[in-house]
Amino acid sequence: MSRKNFLFQKLVNSLLEHIRQYYELGDDLPSDVVLAKQFSVSRTTVRKAIEYLESLDILVKSGAQKTLVAMPEEQDYFDVSLHTKPKEKLVEEYFLKLIQCGKLKPGDKFSELELARQSDSSTVAVREFLIRFSRFGLIEKSPRSQWQMKEFDEAFVDQLYEVRHLFEMHALSNFMSLPDDSPYWAELKTLMEKHQAVLENIETRYEDFPRLDQGVHDLLQQGQPNQFINEFYDIISFVFHYHYQWDRSNEKERNRVAAHEHIAFMSKMLKKDRRGAMLAFEKHLNTAKQSLKNTAIL
């Protein structure tokens, strides 16, 4: 697959996922200029992707207006799995998946050779990734190319929270400075409505919350992205939202509380109440910090 064709297919997949997460039938998508900036591609690539979505009868164009008339389905996505990824990226994706699935837990040991075989990568790529990842305090080196998953302690949580607080409060402040016609405000409103729908049926839909949770925090970062912050925030977000020591026995109540807190600060944001939003968001971050401490092995 050529790089140009892969970029087009990747953009189509990103647009489809973006539509599924943030839009409802009848909504209008932003202009090509806004989409190009949002997804860091050219307007030409955006136009080709929009034309493709038209051919799938997902969008209908009328002049510059692009209206959503059908929700994307799984068969609409391109299979880009065969496109060659950097070996280190393959290792990272596989490693994080092992943690998220609970196959690597605190105290577990694993070898570079084992991880290389499982991720279809090289031991060199594995070693480079693990050395970089070890900076975050989640793993430590053992003799003979062995590694071990580390346990959390209170100091780790406190330090991680300090960085998260800095990044996310900065993101919220930047988001509140967006112009009123920014498409991100509409996406925020849609996310709040989805939160409300989950809360109305929390007994059966509490497992839907983590996806909304990630969507809110991702949206704040997307408002005015910073490539340096994004690199570190990926790991911070991973630890807070998917970390491997959570006790799921209290998941329903934890998600209920977090959803209420999300709605509290999102409603303040939509009212352009900067101070109210900052205070409500601070409360949410503190709750998340305490949840992480409660589930850490101290």
Rank of each mutant, 00 (worst) to 15 (best):
A36Q: 05
L68K: 07
F8Y: 13
F265V: 00
G107F: 08
R211C: 05
H217G: 02
R211Y: 11
L212Y: 02
H243M: 07
V198M: 09
Q221E: 10
F8S: 09
H83G: 02
Q75W: 09
Q118C: 01
L98Y: 01
L16S: 01
V126W: 00
V198R: 01
L220T: 09
L56G: 01
L298C: 06
Q38C: 05
E74H: 12
S182V: 07
D28P: 06
F228M: 09
L160C: 06
T295F: 14
T287E: 00
A197Q: 15
K109F: 03
L220S: 10
Q148L: 05
D108W: 00
A264I: 00
G102C: 07
N5S: 14
I202D: 04
L220G: 11
E282H: 07
I202V: 12
F8E: 09
S182M: 08
H284Q: 11
K103Q: 13
N294H: 11
R144I: 12
E200A: 15
L160F: 09
L188N: 02
E253G: 09
K89S: 12
M278D: 02
L11C: 09
M149F: 03
M1Y: 04
D153R: 10
E168G: 03
R211S: 14
I229Q: 03
L16Q: 04
L16N: 03
W185Y: 08
K150L: 15
F8D: 08
Q159G: 06
I139S: 07
N294F: 08
V216N: 08
G26A: 06
D181C: 11
R43K: 14
F228S: 06
T67H: 07
T295Y: 12
F156T: 02
A116Y: 09
I236P: 06
L59N: 06
E93V: 09
I19V: 11
L138E: 04
D234Q: 13
D208L: 13
A125Y: 01
K97M: 10
Q290S: 14
Y184G: 07
L96D: 04
